[in-house]
Design a protein around this nucleic acid. Structure first.
Lengths: 263, 263
DNA sequence: CAGTGGTCTAGACCACTGG
DNA sequence: CAGTGGTCTAGACCACTGC
């Protein structure tokens, strides 16, 4: 009964080549298993923080060997979609964990660790429903005029306002979001998105520039107008590469810096 | 003759735990194989661009199964130290390849591909031997006053000067480097370092800030003094995490942006 | 066609977690 | 102690490259 991959005979396991017999594209079994798991992840069969079935169980479910499931999960773990814990199981990744908190925030204090200065103090300046402008719509894969939620907030570290940023969220997925929710939640904002709206951010792209502080930014960050600021435009994506957040931030870099690792 | 990593008994597979019986630290066999390969890479047993022995050969050399060698090479490939090519072999990674050229340069034109604007035009402003200041020495793991080579250059894209940067290189490893060499080499500077000095950069760390152009930067980049520029400080490392280059660059970001992917 | 990396399996054993 | 992920092996076959 166990699968005998790539064998056409009676008993054979999933026929790897049969998936799309028209295209000559060859897709390994473990890739197919991977996308099956991915579908379950997307569908919410297992929630963030929960354990997914053991490798043995999944092997039985998909009629393949444990090694094949293993390789599929290896890739998912490499993409930070799941987390393996020896002796315990494999868990759906979440932004709530201590270890990888602020995974997407690359701004670091010049000296000392980020833990030293504690969590950011969040001040929500405004939170309103608006219609998407052309560029917001484009980046969020919406149509101009679609409903979006715009949040403007200031993040301070050790009492010093350091970041001012706008968030744009598709109105559909974030119905009823409020300023209190954004400001009051304990933990990363992306963890709140998971808990309150079932939206898990998986990856993001940033475009960084140097700009001069305009009057409003200068006031919110308590710097002189014209001070150079780091402009960080981020598009964050959920599972199927669907953009779910646009963020435009302006960072003071007199006591902090944006840290990046090149491999 | 052939290495028998950490095996005590005659026939059995290598005893994984015996490596450091004092420390309870457990090091899997494939990790040991990985560091053996890494040592050969460092020692220059195989040069950038060359093929390393086949998995079968390495398995025989180290007296382990092919699967174990495979997992070791998988990690090396994941760190971009080595490149696998099906049907051909596994090759030592190099900065000379077309595909991954400018792996460390994240500045992108706002519209269009980087290939569209062609290679950067390099102008070397100066190239001189100096003594390391305290901060340069610290970042390069040298002592203050040690000999270093400083290179100042301007990079232009499509005729527009966009980057001005200083490079500091340990004098020891880069003896005899000249302005002509830096300016005249066809291909990435890091490829030149490999060919001419046997120094291969493996990874790098960057610290990014927004600053105002000083008079000299303004002149070289043909912008107004005070224009916001992206300040990018990079330390590049060779094999054993040894820092081998410090680079301080200033980027115009009116037509380009620094692109980053968050996972 | 031989040689390379890539996939898949089956089974054994190890390390770690928690009841 | 049972259950989980982690390692290692041996062997089969597939996909790709180049002679």
């Amino acid at each position: 009964m166990a699968a005998t991959p790539a064998s056409n005979a009676e008993n054979g396991p999933a026929d790897v080549t049969a998936v799309s017999s028209a295209t000559p594209a060859f897709s390994p079994l473990y890739q197919q298993i991977k996308s099956l798991i991915l579908q379950s992840l997307q569908a919410g069969e297992w929630k963030p923080g929960e354990a997914i079935p053991s490798e043995m169980d999944l092997a039985a479910r998909f009629r393949v060997s444990q090694g094949t499931v293993r390789k599929a999960i290896d890739e998912l773990a490499g993409e930070n979609l799941v987390v393996r814990r020896q002796g315990k199981g494999t868990f759906v990744a979440t932004h709530s964990e201590q270890q990888v908190q602020y995974r997407f925030l690359k701004l670091m204090p010049d000296s000392g660790d980020r833990d030293d200065e504690g969590p950011a103090q969040r001040t929500v300046v405004e939170c309103k429903r608006v219609r998407a402008t052309a560029d917001v719509a484009r980046l969020l894969a919406l149509r101009s005029g679609d409903a979006v939620v715009q949040v403007r907030r200031v993040l301070a570290f050790g009492g010093v306002p350091t970041i001012v940023e706008d968030l744009w969220l598709p109105g559909n997925a974030f119905k009823g979001i409020s300023a209190e929710q954004v400001a009051g939640y304990h933990g990363p904002t992306y963890a709140m998105f998971e808990e309150e709206f079932g939206v898990r951010m998986v990856r993001a792209e940033e475009r960084i520039r140097a700009v001069a502080a305009d009057p409003q930014q200068a006031e919110l960050l308590k710097v002189e107008q014209g001070t150079p600021l780091l402009s960080v435009e981020r598009v964050a994506f959920t599972y199927n590469d669907a953009p779910m957040e646009l963020r435009r931030g302006f960072y003071r870099t007199d006591t902090h810096h944006y840290r990046n690792e090149l491999n």
